[in-house]
Amino acid sequence: MSGQTLPPAIETVALRKTFGPIHAVGGVDIALAPGRIYGLIGPNGSGKTTLIRLLVGLARATSGEARVLGTRMPSRPLLSRVGYMTQSDGIYPELSVWENLRFFAGLYGRADRARLLAALALVELDDRRGTPALELSGGMRRRLSLACALVHEPTVVFLDEPTVGIDPALRVQFWAHFRRLTGGGATLLVASHVMDEADRCDELLFIRDGRVLARGSADELRRRAGTDRLEDAFLHFAGVTGAAAAS
């Protein structure tokens, strides 16, 4: 319970972002304590990516505030402590696995060999070091993208659907690694619409139409919705009539 007294790693105050008539993020207030894995769960177009981009400082809020580690975003210096795995791979297809990793590590000034090797080992691409990213399989590219986001050992990590296209065995390893990161004090916000992954998070944020519908651990949300399936819990909080039929 001492977690509640720590200052939040991620915080938003009445955060909004509109694109013309679309309220991509429509007034979000959250304060997330450090050292935990948070799942941002919502359907396509619910505003997950936009919320993360606001937190990383890649989008300017229409109104409200986004804070990471107490610093109001956008803030360039803070970015050295932030990791961001984008929804698209965001790697250079013409560069090799090693060159991609070295490039991103270099931007953080942390391109030493040992660190690069460790990052490659994590995503099991050590034997593909010289392969151009273009020649990797889709899942391997995703793995490389994750390595690039974690290579500088960030304190706050935003992962936008990190395990899409990753095989089940590696997925288990990924989550084990995420858990290790929180052991070192890191905070992770993982966007996903895969419910079976949601169970691995410490806490979930259900989001739809740019609003947080509910927040709590998976068990808690299931109990509150009176169902034993997370999908149904989501529909329950979204107020969809179908939820009643399902329960």
Binding site: V56, G57, L58, R76, P77, L79, S80, V82, Y84, T86, S88, D89, G90, I91, Y92, P93, F104, L107, Y108, C148
Partner: peptide, 14 residues
């Protein structure tokens, strides 16, 4: 368009 600029800008690069 490839998303690398977005990623580049998520680092402390100026």
């Amino acid at each position: 368009v490839g998303g690398t600029l977005e990623r580049l800008l998520a680092t402390p690069v100026t």
